[in-house]
């Protein structure tokens, strides 16, 4: 599942159209758009809103829990003090500084996204070029640090990606909406490519316990009414059994028919399972 956080509708619109996302009618306070494996939220401007939306989205849509198979992506427009960098340049962010606290955050940069990289400073208020030091090259936004802090509370760092598109050079006059939308549209292919590549982040872990093994272990745990600790031990022994012997878990299947009438008989059966798996 890819969870995308954008601040503004105009940033989200080309993505919604490209992937045919549909508005979630049940999400009233936060506009959310859903696709097969994409959830996009339009959080509004500011790092607090970005953090709240990111936490809420991960809590609601990270179905597998603990980030298994989930990637969080912040996409948005950013100001760029360096006028040599053309408008419409899409950057992968490798360092985020929260201007108010001077705390730094470092996205993992595991994937080669084929994009130029830059750092980003998240401000609490809109800023103009005059307020930025002359030698500053870092992009400027109002959401990045909030998004990253919240995402890192739920997901491993490698699954957090921040993309920023240069929309202005921090001039005082605001850009018109249609120009900003066309800037995003001009980079939609690159954004789609990042989403595609981010799939790789979801399939990195290898566990010898296959879904069928999980089902067997769960069934066994239910039928014997194993404690949480015993369930944990059972999985550990089962994993070791598969890795050491390169076999499946058929050896413990007969225990499914055994009934435990009380704690003592359950523990006897559990000990017998242990002996089989550790033999």
């Amino acid at each position: 599942m890819k969870i995308i956080i954008t601040a503004l509708h105009l940033e989200a619109r080309p993505i919604i159209q490209c992937f045919g996302l549909k508005k979630d009618p049940l999400s009233r306070r936060l506009p959310v758009y859903l696709g097969d494996d994409i959830c996009l939220a339009v959080c509004g401007t500011g790092k607090t809103k970005a953090a709240a939306a990111t936490g809420w989205m991960l809590g609601k849509y990270d179905a597998a829990g603990a980030g298994q198979g989930t990637v969080a992506i912040n996409f948005g427009l950013a100001g760029c003090p360096n006028t040599k960098i053309p408008l419409g340049t899409l950057f992968a962010i490798n360092k985020i500084t929260d201007h108010a606290t001077n705390r730094h955050f470092y996205p993992e940069m595991a994937l080669n996204l084929s994009l130029p990289e830059n750092s980003l400073t998240t401000h609490d208020h809109p800023v103009t070029k005059e307020q930025i030091p002359n030698d500053e090259n870092s992009l400027v936004d109002m959401e990045g640090s909030g998004f990253f802090t919240a995402a890192a509370a739920f997901l491993p760092v490698p699954r957090i990606i921040c993309l920023k598109l240069v929309s202005d050079h921090l001039e005082k006059a605001p850009m018109d909406k249609s120009t900003m939308i066309s800037l995003v549209e001009s980079r939609i292919k690159e954004i789609a490519h990042v989403l595609q590549l981010s799939e790789n982040l979801c399939h990195e872990k290898t566990d010898p316990l296959l879904p069928a093994d999980d089902a067997l272990l769960n069934e066994l745990a239910m039928s014997l009414r194993l404690t949480a600790t015993q369930r944990h031990q059972l999985r550990d022994w089962a994993r070791g059994h598969i890795l050491r012997k390169n076999v499946n878990l058929d050896i413990i299947r007969p225990f499914l028919t055994q009934k435990a009438d009380n704690k003592a008989s359950r523990n006897r059966i559990f000990e017998a399972i242990k002996n089989e798996l550790l033999a």
Binding site: H104, Y106, E108, A110, A152, P156, V157, P158, E204, K205
Partner: peptide, 13 residues
Amino acid sequence: EVFARPGQDFPSQ
């Protein structure tokens, strides 16, 4: 800030 931050994944890194 980089080496000791939480949420890293040793095998992936």
